[in-house]
């Protein structure tokens, strides 16, 4: 690299950051690209450009940038974080989930625990939800096919009997009054069968039977939501890691006992985490949806606090 290029790249990056702050993502992207041409060894240039491209919804570009940045620097929380969002946007929830989990892992193992954990944790949930949605759509489609096939069979049978009956009335084998009475009973019979069939399908769907409520022992006492990375405090209570850290940063005491509590004192509650995961696997769709009247204050793309 010719001398001075590193400096030039840094200058371009600063200019790009200013445009980004003003919401001028196109301009920011151009400047980051110029910076990359001056210095292609700085992973931050790629993640910054990825972030701008995320805003511009240029997913492939985001993915390229993130992968290049990660190649230059393995421990790359932002890289994995933007990557996950782009993968989610192009509907690859499996890849998105593993990227998001990498970002989360890097975030909670970093020395300065920031509020990023909460943001990334929300993205992890979003990816899990996307995975669950695909599975669920597939399942409903298969079931719906079977149900409509069966309903069609019943209807064909019913129509055939009715037309037979009409033929016999026509031929004088059956009286007109008797014929219309029998027709009415055939109709009730058919409708009852369809009703029973639909009930049977509804009952065989465990979703309809299970009570849609998360057991209290899986719920974080601060957010009132199911935990996905519970940590245990010295008095044995568990909380969601990201939210408890938010509290401890302001007030380093145990929320219940008010005894001094430091972030370093927290231990993962592995068994509880597994219980939560299992519950989510079974019920994810609605567990995630039960944000009653949530107002999404975030704009479309999540952001990490600058570090």
């Amino acid at each position: 690299m010719p001398p001075g290029n590193e400096y030039a790249a840094e200058q371009l990056k600063t200019q790009g950051n200013n445009h980004f702050k003003n919401g001028e993502y196109g301009e920011a992207e151009t400047l980051y690209s110029q910076a990359v041409q001056k210095n292609s060894k700085n992973p931050l240039l790629f993640t910054n450009r990825a972030n701008a491209r995320l805003k511009l919804e240029r997913w492939e570009g985001v993915i390229d940038d993130c992968l290049r940045s990660i190649e230059l620097m393995r421990e790359n929380m932002k890289g994995f974080f933007y990557l996950a969002q782009a993968q989610l946007a192009i509907n690859h929830p499996n890849e998105a989930l593993s990227s998001a989990l990498m970002a989360y892992e890097l975030c909670v193992s970093s020395r300065q625990q920031t509020s990023n954990a909460a943001t990334i944790s929300a993205l992890v949930l979003k990816c899990k939800k996307a995975k669950w949605d695909i599975r669920e759509r597939e399942r409903i489609r298969r079931r719906a096919d079977l149900l409509s096939d069966l309903e069609q069979k019943l209807e064909e049978g019913y129509k055939r009997t009715v037309s037979d009956l009409e033929d016999r009335v026509e031929a004088g084998e059956v009286g007109a009054v008797e014929g219309s009475e029998e027709k009415a009973s055939l109709k009730t019979d058919f409708e009852k069968k369809v009703g029973d069939l639909r009930t049977a399908f509804a009952l065989s769907d465990p979703e309809h039977l299970e009570k849609r409520e998360v057991p209290d022992y899986l719920v974080d006492g601060i957010t009132f939501e199911i935990m996905h990375d519970p940590v245990v405090t010295r008095n044995g209570r568990s909380y969601e890691r990201a939210t408890l850290i938010e509290h401890l940063k302001r007030n380093p005491t145990d929320p219940l006992t008010r005894e001094p509590l430091r972030i370093e004192d927290l231990r993962p509650n592995i068994a509880l985490k597994e219980a939560c995961t299992e519950f989510m696997e079974k019920n994810e769709g609605w567990v995630y949806d039960c944000g009653d009247g949530e107002v999404d204050v975030n704009t479309r793309w999540a952001h990490l606090s600058s570090s």
């Binding site: 909460a118 957010t223 009132f224 939501e225 009653d292 009247g293 949530e294 204050v297």
Partner: peptide
């Protein structure tokens, strides 16, 4: 951040 979610749950209780 999570205020509205948490308040939503408190409200339904």
């Amino acid at each position: 951040m999570f205020a509205s979610k948490r308040l939503g749950k408190e409200l339904s209780k």
